[in-house]
Design a protein around this nucleic acid. Sequence first.
DNA 1: TCGTACGCTGTACATTGTACAGCGTACGGA
DNA 2: TCCGTACGCTGTACAATGTACAGCGTACGA
Lengths: 262, 262
Amino acid sequence: MRAPDVTSSGDPTRTLALLWREPSTAARRGPQRGLNLDTVIEAATAVTDTEGLTGLTMRRVAQELRVSPMTLYTYVPGKAELLDVMLDAAYGRMSRTDTTGQPWRVRLTAVAEENRALFATHPWTAAVSTLRPPLGPGAIAKYEHELTALDGLGLDDVEMDDCLTLLLSFVQTNARAAADARATAQLTTMTDEQWWAAAGPLLARVLDPAAYPLASRVGSAAGAAHGSAHDPAHAYEFGLRRLLDGLAALIERATPAASGRS
Amino acid sequence: MRAPDVTSSGDPTRTLALLWREPSTAARRGPQRGLNLDTVIEAATAVTDTEGLTGLTMRRVAQELRVSPMTLYTYVPGKAELLDVMLDAAYGRMSRTDTTGQPWRVRLTAVAEENRALFATHPWTAAVSTLRPPLGPGAIAKYEHELTALDGLGLDDVEMDDCLTLLLSFVQTNARAAADARATAQLTTMTDEQWWAAAGPLLARVLDPAAYPLASRVGSAAGAAHGSAHDPAHAYEFGLRRLLDGLAALIERATPAASGRS
DNA sequence: TCGTACGCTGTACATTGTACAGCGTACGGA
DNA sequence: TCCGTACGCTGTACAATGTACAGCGTACGA
């Protein structure tokens, strides 16, 4: 079986029933259930939080719950659906700041920060594809909340969705890069600095600064500015500012001095 | 062994030697080699182009070359390093348009388009992390070329790197989403439309439009505008425009009417 | 009271990267 | 010219994964 790591490959009906906790069809007949879906989600989330997405295995979750691996399939059709409900649950737990009345930049920054916090708490949420999102209560509530930050700015419905998608995908990409950096460092048991220290001299020997003047100059300047090749925190600050400036050109097209500039 | 799918976990020295085709230490002693690194890269790239990253297995590449799986390890230390050299080779083959003298928006759009073309030709390149890039001749040439598009705009070195990173990560994220969409559709043998057709009614039954007015209104408006929940081509156009507008605020800060508006 | 639906389990299989040891080849030094 | 040895290639083997399948026992509805 292909590792899914992504979306419910199966029946949307089944997944939606799971997400919305639709009660099962008829009266239970056999033995009492020893667990319930939320317990499974909780255990799986705990495992994934501490051991990463690659640490999320059915066997590991089962072990955590002191239960045989196959037991999990009583609560969940498969690993993909488990990820779906884990994600929706995480969305449901996100804090949602009320920024009504504030300037739009403040409101959008808050939305970005809330997602940033999600990715900080549950790094794996940045790694799963949200293209076909889990349409559960958590995801819907999140979507509704985030749209309110874009409401009343003179955007049409499609533009609202476009702006939100752009903002969220920026934050997710940034978080993914940060998580990758941490994972790589841990996997290699070699910090970024150590890696560059090992690679640097070799590169210097083979790389002709005359042939690649910009690459060597800018590369080393960027490397020196932040400790290593890439600083996710800096990239976040920089990117968010550019992004908001870009949205400003859209939002304030009619009313040039609409809301707050930062 | 953990599936790498990402970076050379091992010795940077070995990887760099591979990337730059450093001749091996001494005179060859044993039998003639039946293959060479570039042949392996070519075969692996062909396999991955047609069958995706999950289709890239050592056994599959070996089969393509009519060779036993373990033979590949004579040419490459492991799968991670193979991915590194594949990526660098793909970077090396990218077309690089000379846009000297053109307005900066045109130049940056060209850079974006070149990367978009790469992701179209080799979808897997969008899926691998480029956080710790393969520092081979291909990647360096790419970096040098792309930096020239940002040269002479009054940005300092760090800002040039920041802008390029932001632009490239936007294009990559967009391509990744597009590839995910295609992969999901193929895996599920269910188009996005079919999926929404199956999920829609169920969702309508459980979702109260009064409780989530914005989510239902904007969600269905966006879904109706493009055929499904997400249209990567539209997101690209929209996002790139916003991004360039955002960079404009940085680039044209001193000289308000610097270069071309689109 | 009893049949049956259902919860839980152990075993099994296909798929993966790659460690390891063996076999044969052909070059460099004698 | 001849041989030791470095090296290319191979088959076998192992650990880890998701999950299909069949069996076993439980407890509810008739």
